[in-house]
Design a protein around this nucleic acid. Sequence first.
RNA 1: GGUUCCGUGGCCGAGUGGCUAGGCAGUGCUCUGCAAAAGCAUCUACAUCAGUUCGAAUCUGAUCGGAACCUCCA
Length: 493
Amino acid sequence: MSKKKSLYIYNSLSRKKEFFEPLNPPFVGLYVCGPTVYSDVHLGNVRSFMTFDVVYRYLTYLGYNVRYVRNITDVGHLLDDSDTGDDKIEKRARLEKIEPMEIVQKYTNGFHNTVNQFNLIPPSIEPTATGHIVEQIEMVQRIIKNGLAYEVNGSVYFDVKKYSEEHHYGELSGRKLDELLEQTRDNLEGGDEKKYFADFAIWKKASEETIMKWDSPWGIGVPGWHLECSVMSTKYLGQEFDIHGGGMDLKFPHHECEIAQSVGADGVNPVKYWMHGNMLTVNGTKMSKSLGNSFLPHELISGDHPLLEKGYTPMTVRFFFLQANYKSTVDFSNDALQGAEKGLIKLMNAIKTLSKLISSEKSSIDLNTIITNCNDSMNDDFNTPMTIAHLFDGVKMINSINDGKATISLSDLEKLQEHYNIFVFEILGLLPQNTDSSNDELPSELMNIIIELRKKSKENKDWDTADLIRDELKKLNISIKDTKDSSVWNYEE
RNA sequence: GGUUCCGUGGCCGAGUGGCUAGGCAGUGCUCUGCAAAAGCAUCUACAUCAGUUCGAAUCUGAUCGGAACCUCCA
């Protein structure tokens, strides 16, 4: 097995593919910005988390000991910096007339359910912002102590201007402060507490009505949104860690501010490799909550949405996403989804065939090329579409062997089965469809009897009966496909 | 307006300076009681215009079109 650790990762910071070398092998620290749990996650969110699910799976496959941290933002996601310190969750809580923590619990549960449906592996640690208020206050203090933050009326702002005297604010997003200034002139008006337009709140004074608030050296308030990620990544992965992931839309200002805070507090540039997943689009426009063009998971599965012609399984969607590079946008369309659906069935059927393949003395196929190609493409910045293409090369091979047009030795067969198990199920994280029912012994026994009966009627050239059996089973979403001297049955979608 | 990125065949999507991934759909053939599956073969390409080069879809420039970000977003 050519499982060489020659992984290259596209680093958003350098805008280049870089050879991946963990800071402390065999350990790898992976931090991914999780959801703000104020409403249902949509498919665009899912794609982002799925990207890093594959990253986690592949790093694990390579033998790294990965600590995977993905936070839950349950406080501090302010509507904006200039208002009264209201955040997204509180606003929602008022709307639904329940406790903020009920909102948090409700949508955290929803998030977990969704993410489970798409077979995402839970992170090693899933910390919450509210669980790290003390650490956040401490970080604010460190930043103040270093002279890079100032207090105004119970709020604390990060001093971007001061910071930029010695550091490069904008190194990740490629932004220049003076250019930013031109485009955000409006922000300078209106009695802002900030000294400089680009300053951002790291602690915000709470208003009377605010429900979730904490005491601090600056009075009652809430932590700033950007701060939690810096605090929790530092706490669980150290001041400097390997990979930080998130959606493209978090690059600025969120991730830029994270860098500034960490450098401002501890003097260390926190992340070695920054990874950013691209957006999911609908008719060419970003899927987002605020635009109202997002699909919710249950709409996707049922097909109950004006833009969907039918429902699609989570695995179809997973496969669909993985057929595109994570750095590209993916446009959601029925044609594309239906193509993915059929492609996935083809792949899964081949895996089923693979498990029943009969070995020969010798192999007439070149197994190592496929295995090497799959490893190489994953090593090339997690190129899943390429990997899937290589897996389809193997599908051709598997079907040829099944048709008797090629042969495979026992040791090669075992190797090939292992390869597909690892790549399809463990790395790409696909699941066989309908596992729950096909694992049941009774239907399988019953089907054997039915197929035997049908075989008898075929031998008697009683085509009416044979077709009747097949047609009636079809109504139960069970398909029968005849091979040379037997029949194969499957559940259909 | 600024920053970053993209424009590949009917649809989705990789990709390297020369040997034209892959999936879906189409066409023909093989197999087959029929159907499906599968196999084999095959048809549609690299936004436009210049330039560099022996050779460019791949490099450079311009043009056109699209997207994300520019303090809500994964």
